[in-house]
Design a protein around this nucleic acid. Structure first.
Lengths: 166, 166
DNA sequence: TCTTATTGATTGCGTGGCACAACGGTTGTG
DNA sequence: CACAACCGTTGTGCCACGCAATCAATAAGA
C-alpha cells in the first residue's frame, strides 16, 4: 500500500498517470448527473438503470432484471411496481411458462429514457465536435476497452468469495 | 415491441454517434462499480463523494461540503457523523469563527479512498497500456472536455428555474 | 397419475439514508 | 446592549433496500 501517492493532480510523470488522475473526478460528476436527472424525472437511480437495461437488452423477466441492476428479487419487484405505477414498464405474462412474467418498457418509459439520452447526447455531440475522425476512433476504442473492463470489474465485485489470486 | 433504433439519434455511420451511443453503458457500469465498492467498504456512495471532495478540495465546512455532495445541511451533518464514527473524518473547530466547524479527512479516511483509487487505477493503467502517447493525449483532452461539460451540467441541473441573470 | 423438489415472483418486517423544519449557539452591527 | 443574520445540529416522517417467508407453476421421480 503506497500511502504516499497523491491522485488529485498527479505528478504526471506519464500521460497515463494524467489520465487516471483525472478520471475519478469526471466519474463523480457523471454519477451526480445521473442522480440529478433521475430525481428530476421523479424516479430513483436504480429505476433509471432498469430502464437503461430494458432498452439495451430488451424485455426480460424480473429475475434477470434484478441481476442486471444489482438488486435482490424482492427489491426488484418493488422497483417494477414503481415503474409500472409511473407507466414506464408493463408486466406481460410469458405464454410458454406461466411462472415467468416479462417486463417490457412502455412508450412513456422509452420516451423518458430517450429524453434523458437526448439531453446527454446533444451535449456530447457538442463536445465531440472538436475531435477529428482519427481521434474519434481512438476514443471509441478507449470507451470499448473501459466498458469491458468496467463490466468485468462489476462481475468481480459481485462475487462474494472473490480475490482468489491477485 | 422492438423499436426501430436502439438510441434516439443513432444515425449510424458517424463516429461521433458511435461514441455517444456507447457512453451510457459504460457510465452505468461505472456507477455500479462505485456502489459496489462503497457497500464493500461499509459506506454509502454519498460518503464516498464526500471523501472524494475532501481529497480534491481540501478540508472545508459542513455547509460547503453539503453543497458539493448535493445534500441538505441536515443530511450532511448525519453523513459527517457516520464518517466520523467510522474514523474517516474529524471535526475541527475554526479558531477564527466559533460557529464554523471544519471537516478534514483522517489518515484512515485517506487510506480508504486511496485503496479505492488504487484498485481502479491499477485496472486503468492496464487498460491504458494499449495506447501510445499520441492517443493518450487525445484521451486526456477528451476527458478534460467531458469533465468540464459534466461539471457544467451538474450546475445546470441543480438550479431548477432560477439563474435569472448573474 | 400422484407426489415431491425446484424455480420464479411477490409480500411482511426491520434498517437506514435523506429532506423538511425547528432549535440553540455565535458573530457582527445599530 | 439588543437585535438580526448565519452555521451547524436535531426531531420527525418518508421511502428504498435487504432478508426471509410465502404462494404459484413447472419439472422430476416412484
Amino acid at each position: 500500500m503506497r500511502a504516499k501517492k497523491e491522485h488529485p493532480t498527479a505528478v504526471s510523470g506519464s500521460l497515463a498517470d494524467e489520465v487516471v488522475s483525472r478520471l475519478p473526478d469526471w466519474i463523480t460528476h457523471l454519477i451526480q448527473i445521473n442522480s440529478l436527472i433521475a430525481s428530476r424525472m421523479g424516479v430513483v437511480v436504480t429505476d433509471f438503470h432498469c430502464l437503461h437495461a430494458l432498452q439495451q437488452h430488451g424485455p426480460t423477466t424480473a429475475g434477470v432484471l434484478a441481476g442486471r441492476v444489482g438488486l435482490t428479487p424482492g427489491s426488484a419487484s418493488r422497483m417494477i411496481d414503481r415503474l409500472a405505477d409511473a407507466g414506464c414498464v408493463r408486466r406481460v405474462p410469458d405464454p410458454h411458462d406461466r411462472r415467468r412474467i416479462l417486463i417490457e418498457p412502455t412508450e412513456e418509459g422509452l420516451e423518458r429514457i430517450n429524453a434523458y439520452y437526448a439531453g446527454l447526447t446533444a451535449r456530447t455531440h457538442q463536445d465531440l465536435a472538436a475531435f477529428d475522425d482519427e481521434q474519434l476512433r481512438t476514443l471509441l476504442r478507449f470507451i470499448e476497452v473501459f466498458r469491458a473492463s468496467a463490466a468485468a470489474e462489476v462481475e468481480r465485485l459481485r462475487s462474494p468469495a472473490d480475490r482468489p489470486a491477485p
